[in-house]
């Protein structure tokens, strides 16, 4: 018996045609799967534009921008989108005011001060916080935080922007923390060493050298958090109320853009009715706001990312 694998050609006859065919089939199918994401985008944009166009057939664009009431379901309907935007702005501003310092300082703690053991415990706990469904945060905001705050702030109403914003802020803190930590982690050691060699303390090295070097990542994490806060639905629906009110007061019930969409969806709204079209007009506004933020974040990272090799 021959001790070597044979080179006899008659024994090596791969079915090249079959492999080529299966390769082509797999490639086509998986390529089509990849296209689903493009179709999703087309579906979203198409849907929103189509219904928004229908909406503006009935409601003048000028009224949409300038009315100071939002009463689309009343007989004397008014469509001042800024009533809803002012509500979203209130909850989001409070949320970011909470999430920015908490998330950034938490990221600094994790990347610079925490020992490996502490990190091993704290990081999974932050992931748990990040994984809590928003309806649970909504429960917490409405039934725990609001009563708690009311004992300090008697004028605080049962539904209000403050509790919703605070809890919303806590819910996006892990996002800011983990993305900022990634950015801080990416700053090369040599820069820290450079700062220490000049006689910088740890805080001076962090604040003056590491954070500026990680700026693009940190800013993009914050922008992402803002966009998450704007699009968040359940916390603000449950805790901030269903009461459209223009202004800046965080103590009264308000209605955010997302809360309005929920309110209409819960009722039985026939397709083609004005209320149905209204939620798409509001959805389009929401989509555009988050799209602008995403594009800005993309641009900012491109423009300000320092390249270290």
């Amino acid at each position: 018996m021959n001790s070597e694998p044979t080179r006899n050609d008659s024994l090596w006859q791969p079915d090249r045609q079959a492999s080529r065919t299966s390769e082509a089939i797999v490639r086509t199918i998986f390529g089509a799967f990849a296209l689903v994401s493009v179709l999703t985008t087309i579906g979203i944009v198409g849907t929103l534009i189509f219904e928004m166009f229908e909406f503006f057939q009935e409601v003048p664009f000028w009224n949409f921008l300038t009315d100071d009431q939002w009463t689309p379901l009343f007989p004397t309907a008014e469509f001042g989108i800024f009533v809803l935007i002012s509500a979203t702005a209130r909850t989001s501003t409070i949320a970011v005011a909470i999430a920015l310092p908490l998330g950034l300082f938490a990221a600094i703690f994790l990347s610079e001060y925490a020992g490996p053991k502490t990190r091993q415990i704290v990081k999974p706990l932050l992931e748990v916080l990040a994984g809590i469904p928003s309806v649970v945060f909504g429960y917490f905001a409405l039934l725990f935080v609001t009563p708690l705050l009311q004992s300090f702030i008697p004028i605080l109403q049962g539904f209000n922007a403050l509790s919703a914003g605070l809890v919303l802020g806590i819910s996006i803190t892990p996002l800011v923390a983990s993305l900022s930590e990634d950015a801080i982690f990416a700053v090369p050691r040599s820069l820290r060493d450079g700062a220490y060699a000049l006689g910088a303390t740890k805080r001076e090295a962090i604040v003056s050298v590491v954070l500026p070097a990680a700026l693009s990542g940190i800013v993009s994490s914050i922008i992402l958090a803002v966009s998450r806060a704007i699009g968040e639905t359940m916390i603000v629906t449950l805790a901030a109320g269903q009461n459209p009110s223009l202004g800046l007061n965080p103590f009264v019930p308000i209605m955010t853009m997302t809360a309005f969409i929920v309110q209409v969806s819960l009722g039985d709204t026939p397709a083609g009715s004005l209320a149905y079209k209204t939620i798409f007009a509001v959805g389009m506004t929401l989509f555009l706001l988050t799209l602008v933020l995403n594009i800005f974040s993309f641009w900012f990272v491109r423009r300000f990312r320092e390249k270290y090799d």
């Binding site: 990849a34 296209l35 994401s37 493009v38 999703t40 985008t41 579906g43 979203i44 849907t47 929103l48 219904e51 992402l224 966009s227 998450r228 704007i230 699009g231 968040e232 639905t233 997302t258 969409i261 929920v262 969806s265 939620i279 798409f280 959805g283 929401l286 989509f287 988050t290 799209l291 933020l293 995403n294 993309f298």
Partner: peptide, 23 residues
């Protein structure tokens, strides 16, 4: 496609609800 996927990850979930409602 990559940029598109990144962008989709940033779209609020309620917008997907509107897509589902319509389509």
């Amino acid at each position: 496609i990559e940029i598109n996927i990144n962008n989709l990850a940033g779209v609020p979930s309620i917008i997907y609800g509107l897509l589902g409602l319509q389509v």
